[in-house]
């Protein structure tokens, strides 16, 4: 029974970790390229969840086959949410590139408040419930008295995450876009002098980050079945923690950190205390930032004098 319980938590943790990991990539890429914490990223994730929700509701009226619905919803969520990421960058961050160092962070904070309340105004403050989209699953170890279940939905979440991770890692390590991004990380002025369009590179970074966050949003609404306009706040902080834990600026690090945060949260609620589960994430955040600010895969950061 103990082993079964443990396995169940492990499965749940990996699923949740995939969601956090996808959000964390957005934090890590933006931090890498312009050195700011995109505080509104959690709310972009929330917008993605809403777009996915709306799409599912609309498709439920049609008789389109489930795999097609999933694929279309994925694309719809990515496209529409990417527009949000792009616009937020253009409106709230781009004018501040040369401002004092805390300005983008404060602006992002304002943007986060705007997004939350905008969605609240447009969609209402009530919790939204979605009927399960993918049902059923595998069960194991029934003989031990505690059934371990692995739902198809969980398999779907993990597989999609792995697939997207692979694609985007290739995109960033193998293409001109990736090279431009890394160049911008090193030295933006020099990169501009070399004829690379820095503004466009930054825009694309936001577009990629937002569309991955929207996928996380879609997973979230399918997995939990309930969302409201406020989910971005906590999920955002946890994903940011994941990004720092993995080593901010590193994409594999973000995924690794996401997994760890998902596991920590699930095991903490499973074995220690469910009331304090958010405290677990915050504690990890504080401890990591203080004692281990480069994370697992990050580069050491010596302040140049």
């Amino acid at each position: 029974m103990d082993l079964a319980y443990f396995l169940q938590q492990l499965i749940n943790g990996v699923t949740l970790g995939s969601v956090y990991g996808l959000i964390a990539i957005g934090y890590t890429m933006v931090y890498g390229i312009i050195g700011m914490i995109n505080f509104a990223h959690g709310d972009i994730f929330m917008v993605g969840a809403f777009v996915a929700l709306i799409s599912f509701i609309l498709f439920a009226l049609t008789s389109i086959a489930l795999p097609v619905v999933l694929l279309l919803t994925l694309l719809i969520a990515m496209v529409f949410t990417a527009c949000y990421g792009w616009t937020v960058e253009k409106l709230a961050y781009k004018p501040l590139r040369k401002s004092f160092r805390l300005a983008p962070l404060i602006s992002a904070l304002g943007m986060s408040i705007v997004l939350q309340n905008y969605v609240q105004a447009a969609q209402g403050a009530r919790i939204k419930t979605l009927q399960p989209v993918i049902q059923g699953g595998f069960t194991f170890m029934e003989e031990t008295g505690f059934t371990v279940s692995l739902s198809y939905l969980q398999v779907f979440i993990v597989l999609v995450t792995i697939f997207l991770m692979a694609i985007f890692t290739l995109l960033i390590t193998r293409t001109a876009l990736g090279r431009a991004q890394r160049a911008c990380e090193q030295d933006r002025t020099m990169t501009a002098l070399m004829g690379i369009n820095v503004d466009r590179t930054i825009s694309i970074t936001f577009i990629i980050g937002s569309s991955l966050a929207s996928v996380a949003g879609m997973m979230f609404v399918m997995y939990y079945g309930v969302i409201d306009f406020y989910i971005g706040f906590l999920a955002g902080i946890k994903a940011f923690t994941a990004a720092v834990l993995g080593g901010i600026g590193s994409i594999p690090g973000a995924m690794l950190g996401g997994l760890l945060i998902g596991l920590i949260e699930v095991f903490w609620s499973g074995y220690i205390s469910i009331e304090y589960k958010d405290i677990a994430a915050f504690t990890v955040l504080v401890v990591v930032l203080i004692f281990f600010p480069t994370g697992f895969l990050g580069k050491p950061d010596i302040e140049k004098v």
Binding site: I113, N117, Q120
Partner: peptide, 17 residues
Amino acid sequence: ESYRMIAFGGAMVLIMI
């Protein structure tokens, strides 16, 4: 409720800019 907070958050962004 939510409109005032939109204005509030927007004000933060505009001030920074």
